[in-house]
Design a protein around this nucleic acid. Sequence first.
DNA 1: CGCTGATCTGACCGATCGGTCAGGGTCTGA
DNA 2: TCAGACCCTGACCGATCGGTCAGATCAGCG
Lengths: 181, 181
Amino acid sequence: MARMVPETHDEILVAAARRFAATGYRGTSLQDIAREVGCSKAAVLYHFANKEAILTELMAPAIDVLQALDHRISAHRGAAAQQVAAEGFVDLAVRFRREIALLRGEFPELLQQPAFAHIQRISERLVDALAGHPGRPAARIAALVLLAGISETCGEFADVADEELRAALLALARRALEPVD
Amino acid sequence: MARMVPETHDEILVAAARRFAATGYRGTSLQDIAREVGCSKAAVLYHFANKEAILTELMAPAIDVLQALDHRISAHRGAAAQQVAAEGFVDLAVRFRREIALLRGEFPELLQQPAFAHIQRISERLVDALAGHPGRPAARIAALVLLAGISETCGEFADVADEELRAALLALARRALEPVD
DNA sequence: CGCTGATCTGACCGATCGGTCAGGGTCTGA
DNA sequence: TCAGACCCTGACCGATCGGTCAGATCAGCG
């Protein structure tokens, strides 16, 4: 039952994460991943149904937390929802900044794939909660810029301590977002 | 001299801009562009040396303005440099938001190409100016998030009036950036 | 021993990519 | 009328992509 051989499945995940972070999802071929693992491309496709399955497995924990955040937000309204959204998203970005970095620059295309379709709806609700004011365009702009900015950059702060990064981003969010009355 | 035939060169630029905005630079093939223009792929490559040349010609005006901004910033220090950088970048983002949107999600890879190498250095100086404090990590984080956020999202505000968008982004920048003493 | 199932390989597939090339219209100025 | 510049085409190129497939290897088991 228990094999002595190292778990190739996990090695592929680790190698894929490295390559995706370095050259992006589309910029990484199955051959690249196989080379990094030291196996054949066919071996990679033995452990994963296809290329997308590798990405979804890497992102699964972050997506779970995002969905939980979505549920928590929907239980609040107005200023409370804004605060829950800001704190929750900053926390998510800090905890999963390596995973989020894998998607850097490929959010638009990747989110259109069926496997990530619900993520798009969640992020729309997240923007609404962060914006607070449904009517004010400026509030929505600020929320969108903050959301996109944190998503795109958080991966670059791998060397910053979690607590320090969380404090900096939370302070930024509080300044950037318009207060809800 | 003056031909009657429509300027295919410009038609290619327009079509490429549409495709790049819709599916990204890498997600757009020369065949896609040719199909949209209604000519052959070879005709596209008759008017442009290669695929990258189309992008550089589309981005040229925005890059010129960015370089001019870089020069203006370098003539200032501290709080003055921060203000020039913030106003200049917001203005650039608003004026060229369609062009910037073409790069959405492909900044990292595209900036590594030789044709865009100097852009990377300019944006680093831009971040420094926006951050203000050289020593404070939180100030640099705020500047990076703001820069990336605006770059990634400004293309989505195509239906917002220039003046309104500029005012909203400038107000956001003033709130988000840490004041320099 | 032979069998089975898990693991993995190399060879191969069709599609698509960016780019090249020879040649053919078409218009212009001499 | 004709040379030549300009504009464009279809056929083709090598490379690479994600993915398939038949079969080799090997450990554990009855």
